[in-house]
Write a protein that binds this DNA or RNA. Structure first.
Lengths: 348, 348
DNA sequence: CTGTTAGCGCCTTCAA
DNA sequence: TTGAAGGCGCTAACAG
C-alpha cells in the first residue's frame, strides 16, 4: 500500500530489516557483485513494492551527477514534419533506455540558444542533441564542445562532434534511378533553390541526382529556381511553363515545392504522371496527400532522432562515430510504372 | 574567468569574503529582506560573475523539492501541426518564466503513459501538462489527481483539474457567420465525421455552425460523413457529388478534410469560391497552401500551450480556473467576398 | 555479506 | 547583518 508521505530508501531498508546501503545495492541491481544474501534481496524487493518506493532522482543526481535525462535543442520545431517526427523517434529511443528528454527551441536566436544550453547544463543533462530543422552547416556554441553532444541534421566544420545526417547524396541518386527506370529522364528539371548558404540538403540532392543521371548518360536539363515554399514554387513553375519546352520530369527539392509544382502543372493541363513525372524529397504526409501521391525520397525522421540518442548513450570509451542514414524511396503515383522488362533490365 | 572545475556557492562566498549563507541570500534576491550590506552584495555579485557561477539545480531540487521544470505529456506529437505548435507556445512561455519542459509521448498507450508520469514525478517536475492532439474527453490517470496538472485540449468529466480548450462552439458560429455574410449559406453541407466517441471538436463545431446558421434562418442541408483524413474526404465528397444537388458551401471539419474536398471539387470542375464556398477548421499551414487558400477557423495553437503553462504557474492559493481560448478567422480565398453593403448590414 | 560514515551543493532555521 | 550547523535522499569508500 502506498504511503501518503514520500517513501524514502531508508523506509524500505527499515521495513526489510537492512541498512540503506544494502537496500541501495539490491535496488540498483548490484546484489551479485556485492554478494547480498538471497533473503535480504527478497525482503527488500517486497518492501519496495509494498511501499511503492520510487527513488528520488534529484538526490541521485546530486550524488552521481547524472540525471537519466537528455536535452534536445532545436532551432525550430513547428515547421513541417521534420522536428516533430524526429522528436518522436528521439523521445521513444530515450524512453526505451530509461531516459527522458528536456526540449527547447532556440527560434534561431543565438542569445536564446546560449541561455537554453546553460539551463540544460545546470540541470545536469547527460547529453545534448543539437538539432536543426533544415540540414545545414552550424556553429556549435563553445560551452557544448566539452560536453556529450551530438549534432542532428547539421554539422560543424570547426568541431569534431559526432553527427547524425541523412544521406542526401544517395537520396539524389535514388531519385535519378527512379526516373531512369521509368524512362522519364530525357528532360529533367530541378525545382527549388536554397537561399541559405549554409544549407546542404539541396546541393547534395542535386549532386546525387546529377551523378545518378550521368551513369545513364543523362544530365539535368535545367533548374527552376524558387524558395522551398508552396506559393513560391507554384509561381516559379507556372511562370516557367509559359516559355519552356515541356519537361519529362520535375525533381522537386522538397515536398512543399512539389505541392506548388502540382498546382502549376494542373493549371497548364499537364497530367501527372502521364505528361510529366514528379519526384520530390522528404517523404512527409504532404506528399502522400496529393493526387496522385508524390513519389518522394523520404527522410528517416524517426530513425534520425533515435540514432542521435544512441550516439549519446554509446560506451564513452569509444570515440563517437558519426552516422549517415539512408533515405528511402516512397512510391506514390507521380512517376509512371516502368514496364516489367524495363525494370528487370535496369536492376540487372 | 570561468574555472575548469565546477564552481560552487561557497567558492563564490569565499572569493567575496562572506559565508555561503550570505551569498545564497544575495544571489536569491533576498538581500533587502535580510538587510545585507551593500558592500557584500557588490562583492558577491562580482565574484559570481567572475567565476561564472551557476547554481546546481539538482542540489537545489533536493533541498527545495522544486525543479523549475514542467512535464508535457502528449498522446501524439507527430501528427499535424497541433502538437508541435502547441509545444512551441508552451516551451516559449515556460522559458520566459525560467522553466524548461520535459516532454514525452504516450503513443496512446495507457501503460506507457503511466510509466512516463512516474518518470516525470520522480524528477520532481513542478507541474504536468496533460495534452491530447485531438480535442476530446480523457481519463486522467490517478497519480495526476494530486499533482499540479492542467489538461490541454481535453477534459476529464471525472476530475476537477483545470483545463485549457479552444472555443470550438464559437468557432462554429464564426464559420456560419462567414458563410452568411458571403451569401453562400443556402445549401451548406458539413464534411467530416468523428468516429471516436470521445472526440468533442467535431460535435461542438457542428453545434456552433447550426446555431449560427439558425440566427439567419438557415440550417445545415446535410452531412457528408468521412474520417478526418485527406483520402477519405476526397473519396466521400467525390462519391457524394455524383448524386447530390450542388452545395453553395462546404464546411470541412478540419483542414485535411478540406484538402480532400478541394481535390473532389476540382475533379468535378467546380470552382472555388465561384461555384462552391469552402470553410474549414484548424488554420494549419495546409489550408494556406491550397489554391485558393482555404478560409479556416484557426486554433490558437501557440496560445493554448502558453495558457497551459500559465495555469501551472498560477498563484497556488487560487483555485485554478479553466481557460477557453477563441478561434480566429483566417480568410483565404475559398469564400466569396461579400459586397460592401452586405458586409455592413450583416455587422449591424 | 552488511552497516557506518561521509559527503554531493544548496537552503534555512537558529544564534551571535 | 552575518555565520555555523543540519539535513534534503542517495551512493560509495571503508570497515568489519
Amino acid at each position: 500500500v502506498a504511503q501518503s508521505r514520500k517513501v524514502t530508501l531508508s523506509d524500505v531498508a527499515g521495513r526489510a530489516g537492512v541498512s540503506a546501503t544494502t537496500a541501495s545495492y539490491i535496488l540498483n541491481g548490484r546484489s551479485a557483485e556485492m554478494r547480498i544474501s538471497a533473503g535480504a534481496q527478497v525482503r527488500v524487493r517486497e518492501a519496495a513494492a509494498e511501499l511503492a518506493y520510487r527513488p528520488n532522482r534529484s538526490a541521485r543526481a546530486l550524488r552521481t551527477a547524472t540525471t537519466k535525462t537528455f536535452g534536445l535543442l532545436s532551432d525550430f520545431v513547428a515547421s513541417g514534419q521534420f522536428a516533430s517526427r524526429m522528436l518522436t523517434g528521439a523521445s521513444a529511443a530515450a524512453r526505451a533506455a530509461d531516459h527522458l528528454l528536456v526540449m527547447a527551441e532556440s527560434e534561431g536566436d543565438a542569445g536564446l540558444e546560449g541561455q537554453i544550453i546553460e539551463e540544460m547544463l545546470d540541470r545536469q543533462v547527460d547529453g545534448i542533441i543539437y538539432a536543426t530543422v533544415a540540414a545545414r552547416r552550424a556553429t556549435v556554441p563553445a560551452p557544448l564542445h566539452a560536453e556529450n553532444v551530438v549534432l542532428l541534421n547539421c554539422f560543424d566544420p570547426a568541431s569534431s562532434l559526432p553527427t547524425v545526417l541523412p544521406d542526401e547524396f544517395e537520396g539524389g541518386r535514388t531519385a535519378a534511378r527512379t526516373l531512369i527506370e521509368a524512362g522519364t529522364a530525357e528532360r529533367v528539371f530541378i525545382v527549388g533553390h536554397d537561399e541559405d548558404a549554409r544549407a546542404i540538403a539541396g546541393p547534395l540532392r542535386v549532386e546525387g541526382l546529377t551523378s545518378g543521371l550521368a551513369e545513364a548518360g543523362k544530365a539535368v536539363a535545367g533548374v527552376v529556381e524558387c524558395a522551398w515554399r508552396v506559393p513560391a514554387a507554384y509561381g516559379a513553375v507556372a511562370a516557367w511553363l509559359e516559355h519552356s519546352p515541356r519537361p519529362t520530369a520535375l525533381v522537386c527539392l522538397n515536398d512543399r515545392v512539389a505541392v506548388g509544382a502540382y498546382q502549376a502543372l494542373a493549371e497548364f493541363g499537364l497530367r501527372i504522371p502521364d505528361d510529366v513525372a514528379v519526384v520530390s524529397f522528404d517523404g512527409s504526409d504532404l506528399a502522400a496527400w496529393q493526387r496522385p501521391p508524390v513519389t518522394s525520397i523520404a527522410l528517416p525522421f524517426e530513425a534520425l532522432g533515435a540514432a542521435a540518442v544512441r550516439v549519446l548513450m554509446r560506451d564513452k570509451s569509444e570515440p563517437a562515430a558519426s552516422v549517415r542514414l539512408p533515405m528511402s524511396l516512397v512510391s506514390g503515383g507521380s512517376v509512371p510504372t516502368p514496364r516489367p522488362a524495363d525494370r528487370r533490365s535496369a536492376r540487372a
